[in-house]
């Protein structure tokens, strides 16, 4: 009931205005661009150092009955990570800054724009930013011969779902943050996900208990979905991963909008 009320009154023009605000901020100075570029190079450096560098030592890897070069195994995971980081950078640090310190959302909420529209606009913007990373990364993968062009193209929409999922959760987390120090905690969690989500080693090689834990966490599903498509090995199981990510999108968005309303509209 509450949910349908929130969703049915959404105005695309107002969501667009929230996106436009961020576009304006992007145009306004070089500092933002620096942040933007760094988000692309981080996963690229991991790909080159570990995927290609360590990969030379590892050689071939057997995944699901197929034999893969290690770099081909790692690259889709780095792609999923790029989608996650791109979305999180925008919906955590930037979102939190606008919500808590710049009071940008207070100013916006004095206009017809609703909290859910802010959440949608911010998420859309995070997607634009994240897609820049992943788009560039997909091209790098194809150029390095780590994915065939068609399968890389198929993986791209999956990275968008990954971005939406982590972006929504990022916003939800931001509405709960007390101050910048809380982000250290988040960064640690993010790094743990990055290391253990089947990114650098097949999850099947981990002890059984650890496998269960990993299968509950979100980046695992993102990596599995993106990798399944990027290496050209689609299966019905990928739908389950997609469903997990979709649930993150819906849950995160609604939670973030509710929290914005409860924190800012009092």
């Amino acid at each position: 009931m509450m949910t349908t009320m929130i969703v049915t009154r959404v105005s695309p023009a107002r969501v667009g205005a929230v996106i436009g605000r961020n576009l304006g901020a992007l145009r306004s100075g070089p500092s933002y661009w620096v942040v933007l570029v760094s988000g692309f190079f981080e996963p690229l450096f991991y790909l080159l150092s570990i995927g290609v560098g360590v990969g030379a030592l590892v050689g071939e890897l057997r995944v699901g009955g197929r034999s893969l070069p290690y770099a081909t195994f790692v690259a889709p995971a780095m792609l999923a990570v790029a989608a996650m980081s791109g979305a999180l950078a925008e919906t955590t640090y930037n979102f939190f800054g606008k919500m808590k310190y710049q009071k940008t959302f207070d100013a916006i909420l004095a206009t017809p724009v609703r909290p859910f529209e802010i959440a949608l606009g911010e998420l859309s913007w995070a997607m634009i930013r994240g897609s820049l990373y992943t788009g560039m990364f997909v091209i790098v993968m194809v150029v390095l011969g780590l994915a065939s062009p068609l399968w890389a193209l198929a993986a791209f929409p999956a990275t968008m779902l990954v971005g939406l999922a982590f972006g929504s959760i990022g916003m939800a987390i931001s509405t709960l943050m007390r101050g910048w120090q809380d982000f250290d905690l988040m960064a640690t969690g993010q790094f743990a996900l990055f290391l253990f989500s089947g990114t650098f080693a097949p999850v099947g090689d981990y002890p059984a208990a650890m496998q269960v834990i990993i299968q509950v966490t979100p980046l695992y599903h993102a990596v599995e979905l993106v990798r399944g498509l990027a290496i050209g090995d689609p299966s019905w199981g990928l739908l389950a991963h997609a469903a997990y990510l979709l649930a993150m999108v819906l849950g995160g968005l609604l939670f973030a909008a509710r929290r914005l309303e409860r924190v800012l509209c009092v």
Partner: peptide, 28 residues
């Protein structure tokens, strides 16, 4: 309504002019 809050919440990421044009967009 036009609201001028007690604490300035102008947008520091935008120019003076953009603060107005961007805000106008929120009203459609």
């Amino acid at each position: 309504l036009g609201v001028c809050p007690q604490l300035d919440n102008l947008d520091p990421d935008l120019s003076v002019r953009e603060n107005l044009t961007t805000y106008a967009r929120y009203f459609g």
